[in-house]
Write a protein that binds this DNA or RNA. Structure first.
Lengths: 241, 241
DNA sequence: GCAAAAGTGTTCATTTTACACCCATGA
DNA sequence: TCATGGGTGTAAAATGAACACTTTTGC
């Protein structure tokens, strides 16, 4: 009954599922959800692709570490960052010491994703067609994708893929890429305008071969994402590498 | 640039937000969402109410530890258990060593909650009217409540509050208690029947002062809760105290 | 029979979906 | 002026809310 139990401790690590929208270089066409992976250079799962991440440093906050490793692998700064899940079962670690991994998911802007660094052991993959990853990372990506898609319906995270000003067609493209299906432009416009999340500016995007679309901006009065009562964990890394 | 960084480690702990439906002993009437809290017997926040929980033991899995501490404080077994959030920022711990807390939320059945143990330092509170809790536990409970209410709309977790067989009126009472508002019995019946989540049995609940309602059961072919692709972490503690 | 909850039917309002059609610009 | 995406209007379809009404039991 009153057995003496020793208290568990663990090493800490973070991983991050990083989503960006990219047009497939070959097929072209509509943008899709892509994510960067890193190749493991040691056992276990040596040679397999895995989520970017790494150990937590002494005194470092969880979300900060997630943003830091994201920046180290892509050279980018997250425009959205949120905790996904914590893995810490005793059986999970192969070594002697237990390792607790806190997994985050992040969004980065499209233009930035274009100029993302791609090193020897970093590559981008379409989120729907991943190879077999290390550990249970396939499952984690699926869960992150589910969270992304679910959250798009009741929050404004789609804006995290875009810049300061954008057309409604661009915003619709984001929704279409994430949901994986086409949306009616007319109905989409009305839905977004009714939500009050965006504000029309008096600027127009010129240079298009056709009628110039109006530019919109976010309504700063509305939160970026309704994550419930829990405070959002957002950090920005301005070329801190 | 290539500074040597020491790797962070931490002690591990779990806490659990435990929800049950109870009728207020004084006002009676409709059941509401209640949860058990424990009084802290040491600093910091000595004397304040806090979420049940405790340190993780060596070799113990996270979800198992959540179910164990739940069982230790209430004598009950969770009918639903899911991870909520991980707290592990360096500044959070007052002591020298960092502490990572994994918070779970759980549902227990109504009848069982009735016979839950209430010790000297354990008390049940209505979830909507909590005192000022220790740490940031008020915020955590709010988040768990938000998750419970959100999840009710697209999953079958309401069933976790009920037994094997139940009437549609009982199921409606659960929804009403969680959502905090009355629902139209006729429309609720149609909605539930259309969802295909429940199956009508050929049994009826007798002993009521009026027309005996039909008993239903879960459709085992449908998952209890659509938590996305991540596997559910469920454990059952059959009087293991 | 009466009261009360179980269960069914129907109407009305609202939202969603589909799609026709006009507008404004570059070429 | 023509092609094309931007933007508006509108009707059908689906959904949701409200509520009248019938059924079945205990008393």
């Amino acid at each position: 009954m009153t057995t003496k139990h020793e208290r568990a401790s663990a090493l800490l690590a973070v991983s991050t599922v990083i989503f960006a929208l990219r047009k497939d270089d070959e097929t072209g066409g509509e943008p899709q959800v892509w994510l960067p992976l890193v190749r493991r250079i040691r056992e276990p799962f040596q040679g397999r692709w895995a989520l970017p991440g790494g150990p937590l440093r002494v005194g470092e906050d969880l979300a900060y570490a997630a943003g830091r490793t994201l920046n180290e692998t892509t050279g980018l700064a997250p425009s959205y960052l949120e905790q996904l899940y914590a893995f810490g079962d005793a059986s999970r670690s192969s070594g002697a010491e237990r390792v607790v991994s806190i997994v985050y998911w992040a969004l980065v802007r499209g233009e930035e994703a274009e100029r993302a660094v791609v090193g020897e052991n970093v590559a981008w993959f379409p989120a729907d067609h991943l190879p077999e990853l290390a550990f249970d990372h396939n499952l984690i990506v699926e869960y992150a994708l589910w969270r992304l898609r679910t959250k798009m319906e009741y929050s404004r995270i789609a804006h995290a893929f875009l810049g300061e000003r954008f057309t409604l067609a661009q915003l619709r493209e984001v929704h279409e890429a994430v949901l994986g299906r086409a949306l009616d432009p007319a109905n989409f416009r009305r839905t977004i305008e009714a939500s009050g999340a965006v504000v029309a500016t008096d600027e127009y995007l010129t240079g298009t071969p056709h009628r110039p679309p109006r530019l919109y901006r976010y309504d700063d009065a509305v939160d970026l994402a309704d994550a419930g009562p829990l405070p959002l964990q957002q950090h920005f890394f301005k070329g801190e590498s």
